[in-house]
Amino acid sequence: MALRGWAFPEWKTVARAGFGAVLLGVLAGSALADDALKLTELSPNGADACFGRVYDAAHLKAHPHQKVARIFFYYGHDPVSRPNEEPAPSDTSYNAFVATTVRGAKAPQWAGGWCNHESEDGKTGPIHCGMDCDRTLASLKVDDKGRLLLSDLQPDVYLDAGSEEELGTAEYDRQALGKEDDNFRLDPMPAATCKAEFARIDPIDPALGPPLRERLKPDQAFCYGRDYDAAHLGSHPNQLTQSIRVFRGPVELASFASGGDASNWPDGADIAVSVTTRQKSGKVTQTYSCQGEADQWRCAASSKMSDFSCDIAQKEIFLKRGADGTMMLANPNSSLAIVDLCSKAADGKTKSDDKVYRLQPMPQSACAP
């Protein structure tokens, strides 16, 4: 049934982690080379190394311009991974990862890069950690007690380059790190401690089962839907949807087989959505092209195999896995094909009950043309 009263910020439109909105497609993770880690100051035995610190209330009260309440630095193989809907990691050379949680935040933000000695032989001198786009992640030293001294952490480490001008001073200051968020002294910790901290970034809800990208294979047809009876529609007078189907059939499978990359699944997956409303005798079908993003599939309306021909790329829906094998569909911006997506009626927020749907798995015949 269509669900009412959901808070749509829960359906994320941009996952701002790592290097800001750019992401460059490689922040899904890294697979360090099998060679032992080279910076022996950080990792004397070649194993992954973890350093961290959690600041207490007294410290934060004494440092009002420090936003960071928790900070962890991990040197080694990717501790972030992608446990939800984003594609499996591609190989990169990242060997350093920073996670910080600011005051009041529920989850950390993170960034990754490369750390090496600043010397011609690469074996001596200060340790510098760089990021994509020739940016600095941090500078590192290890003191005589094995603690990591982390400096040069940039205020905009989680923002795009040039974001101060784009956002304006006030919003930039709100999103950037604080004036005292630098020169951290971090204690050595077990690698498992860092992995647990990074796992807080994109946690899995075990009650929901495997991600959709695992449930639904690149070469697998599927059909989910819901039919609403007169009693339901009578109690939901603002709901236009009488019947809804979300599916991949032979056409969508052939489209992915010819141009998709199974290693990046579900990115590039086409799905079709068919809707019958109270006001129309026939169903309207719209195709969407999806990509994995955090715990959902973000699907933009496509001109392929659709009933509309205008530029509708900004019309989006979002798919999530639901409990007991269901699929949740969110339509916060009138992007469901209840009305002609090219018309003015499709602009603005959805005002009816046609915002969120809990869909049941159905036989493929239920989604046949």
Rank of each mutant, 00 (worst) to 15 (best):
L32V: 15
A33L: 07
D181L: 06
D324Q: 12
A231R: 15
V26D: 15
L27V: 03
R4K: 14
A111F: 05
W11L: 05
L37R: 05
R321K: 11
L216M: 12
P108V: 00
S274Q: 14
A15I: 10
H117P: 02
C342T: 02
Y55R: 03
T100K: 08
F318C: 01
V22A: 13
K304S: 09
L42D: 03
A323C: 02
G260I: 07
H77K: 15
D229G: 14
A191L: 01
G162K: 12
P361N: 08
D187E: 15
P210E: 07
Q154C: 10
S163V: 03
Y75H: 08
A31S: 14
P87V: 09
T101P: 06
D35M: 15
A337M: 09
V102H: 10
E197C: 03
A231T: 13
E85P: 10
R16M: 07
S306E: 06
S119D: 13
S90M: 08
P211G: 07
C342G: 03
D34N: 12
D295V: 10
A313C: 05
P206C: 06
E166S: 13
P369D: 13
T276A: 08
T169A: 06
G234M: 01
D34H: 12
V284P: 04
Q364R: 09
D307N: 15
G52Q: 05
L359F: 03
F222G: 00
I127Q: 13
S343P: 07
K304D: 10
V22R: 10
S281N: 14
S139D: 13
V251R: 11
G29F: 00
Y55V: 00
L42Q: 08
D311H: 15
F247E: 04
P64N: 00
A111V: 07
R147E: 07
D229Q: 08
S335V: 08
P361K: 06
E165L: 02
Q296E: 11
D229C: 03
G268H: 09
A138D: 02
V26T: 03
E293H: 12
A366N: 04
A368M: 00
E118P: 07
F222I: 00
E165T: 07
N264W: 13
Q66G: 01
V339Y: 01
R215H: 02
C50K: 08
L3W: 13
S151Y: 06
I71R: 10
A107M: 09
E316I: 12
S274R: 14
T100V: 11
G146N: 02
G322H: 02
